[in-house]
């Protein structure tokens, strides 16, 4: 089974993330980036499926030069090869434009049996690229898989909702997005880190994909960030001095916030 996993290079959530003042895109320069943690689950699931049978795992990412780090991590975990689409013209692309580039890249890679995505990126957190990608590739899509198995030419997933869990089947080829409940991603071992250095990474531009620069980028995106404001600092908590009535005051506070 050949699997393509879409991964994203995102600013480290532990850092002080912000936007560029000039064009209001995500600032990817001043903070360290890494493979989106939510995508690690998709990589792990792909590795498990291939290890249980046969085939190969290809990771694909769209992003600036530094995004090579994201595919490197996936290769260190055990993916077989990677494709990195990097082109100045892609800068500032929104979800529809990103899904267009990914779709053309996946077509060029070949016809995978399965396309796996994470639940969402940890920077944009839009969670819409998998659906757009499935539409562009003409594939059935099943989302939010917390369990996944392949039986014959079908994929079966469990999707946990607030009131019920659904078991859903889709015929292959298809696209599945997975949650952070589906597995425990492995850590790259020393052997994995060394092996990754010998694995093929192809770097493609828009021209390689036949995508016109006029279809992507900040100016051609359907959505725009108009303004951003920093979240206000957390306010000082209310300190209640206990003068014999501390318990009552605490109860009043909780009641005022409708906790009790």
């Amino acid at each position: 089974m050949n699997i393509v996993v879409c991964v994203k290079y995102v600013p480290d959530a532990q850092s002080d993330r912000t936007f560029n003042d000039s064009d209001k895109t995500t600032d990817r320069e001043s903070v360290d980036g890494l493979l989106s943690e939510l995508d690690e689950y998709a990589v792990e699931e792909a590795l498990k499926l291939v290890e249980a049978g046969e085939g190969e795992v290809t990771v694909v990412t769209v992003g600036p030069d530094q995004a090579a780090d994201a595919v490197k991590k996936a290769l260190q975990m055990g993916a077989d090869k990677a494709v990195h689409i990097s082109d100045e013209a892609i800068h500032g692309s929104d979800a529809p434009a990103t899904s267009l580039v990914l779709a053309e890249a996946i077509k060029k890679i070949g016809s995978p049996d399965l396309v796996l995505c994470g639940l969402a990126s940890t920077d944009g957190t839009m969670s819409v690229v998998p659906a757009m990608l499935a539409e562009r590739l003409g594939l059935p899509q099943v989302t939010q898989a917390s369990e996944l198995s392949v039986e014959g030419d079908a994929v079966k997933i469990r999707r946990d909702g607030d009131v019920a869990s659904e078991t859903i089947e889709a015929s292959l080829p298809c696209l599945v997005s997975v949650t952070d409940q589906i597995n425990e991603p492995r850590y790259p071992s020393f052997k994995g880190i060394m092996a990754a250095k010998k694995k093929p990474v192809e770097t493609w531009t828009l021209a390689d994909l036949g995508v016109d620069a006029g279809q992507v980028g900040l100016d051609n995106s359907w959505t725009k960030v108009l303004e951003f404001t920093k979240r206000p600092p957390r306010e000082q908590g209310e300190i209640v001095k206990d003068e014999g009535d501390g318990g009552s005051k605490l109860a009043e506070f909780l009641a005022s916030r409708k906790f009790i």
Partner: peptide, 14 residues
Amino acid sequence: DDHRDFRASVRNFV
């Protein structure tokens, strides 16, 4: 970079 990547892996484990 290999040391850095291995360090990240061990730190993640810890």
